[in-house]
Amino acid sequence: MIPGFPYAQPIEGFLGGLLIGLAAAIMLLGIGRIAGISGLLARASGMSDSGPKQSIALMFIIGLVIGGGLFSLTLGPIEVRYPPNLWWLVPAGLVVGIGTRLGSGCTSGHGVCGMSRLSRRSIIATLTFMVAGFATVALVNLSGGGW
């Protein structure tokens, strides 16, 4: 699709992105809340006092699982490739959990919602987690663990 990048899926990516933006717009214009997934997960699981009512956050989280499943059933299957050793997901999940709470957001809250609002805080957070991601992947590759 894009010369030089044989694996890229720009059209599917862009269309999926439009839907992600639509979902965030529904939350914002419907109930006045940011569709930040780490925050909504913390709220739904009772670990945070800020955000929409706990039951509404839980509905969003359940919807997320339904949405992924619905795609798999209709337009799927969803192509996936995980790290060769699934136990890598333990330290990965741990630091994602700590980091998203400490930094008040992830790709959805800071990336999609905050950057489009031109929030300086979100732009700096997004640049920081992207640079950390670049560095981590480069280090894993250098250590021979690339996948």
Binding site: E12, L19, A23, I26, G63, L64, L70
Partner: peptide
């Protein structure tokens, strides 16, 4: 609204390819 937003978000993630860690 929470449920619908979640479903659309999840469907969009799947379509976009972002559910593939690789």
């Amino acid at each position: 609204i929470g449920l619908v937003s979640g479903v659309v978000f999840g469907f969009g993630l799947a379509l976009s390819g972002m559910m593939n860690p690789a």
